[in-house]
């Protein structure tokens, strides 16, 4: 299926940009007229994915975070959040609730669990030393449906 609209944004992986990134995606999704709840879900999932890039992907350096979003005719939004950081050696383990490789930051280890419960689909592709791409998908319901 071909997207009916698309956007890309990239920014330095500074934590102050976490708010920028979720707000930018929300502004793009707004054209589907989502509910407040749908928008909050998407913002939260994006926030988790971008935080992962900054906290884990670029753990000890500053890198660039790339976001692309596609809107499809069936009111589905697909969001890709990508870093060129260290990669995840064991994706299955990283996605386990409560597991965190950064306990000193008081991370709850719930990033992926939150993404999975708020999105329809979460896909993670990662290569050690190359980076990680998280793909989030969510359908926006038609109002009155």
């Amino acid at each position: 299926m071909k997207p009916i609209n698309a956007m890309k944004v990239q920014f330095e992986g500074r934590s102050v940009n976490e708010a920028f990134s979720r707000t930018a995606v929300a502004a793009f999704v707004a054209q589907l007229d989502p509910t407040v709840e749908e928008l909050a879900d998407i913002k939260t999932a994006v926030s988790e994915a971008v935080t992962n890039c900054i906290v884990h992907g670029y753990r000890d350096r500053l890198g660039v975070v790339y976001i692309s979003a596609n809107l499809y005719p069936d009111r589905r939004i697909q969001i890709k959040v990508r870093d060129k950081g260290c990669g995840i050696p064991d994706i299955q383990r990283a996605m386990e609730p409560m597991y965190t490789s950064a306990p000193e930051e008081e991370r709850a280890g719930l990033g992926f669990a939150v993404m999975q419960s708020l999105m329809d689909r979460v896909k993670v592709v990662s290569k050690e030393g190359k980076g990680t791409t998280v793909t989030l998908e969510r359908s926006i319901r038609c109002k009155g449906e």
Binding site: R22, A40, K43, T44, S47, E48, T51, E105, E106, R107, A108, L110, G111, A113, V114
Partner: peptide, 13 residues
């Protein structure tokens, strides 16, 4: 107005 899992970490801590 918004909270992600960082808020969970804050509460659990």
């Amino acid at each position: 107005s918004f909270m992600d899992s960082s808020g969970i970490g804050l509460v659990m801590g």
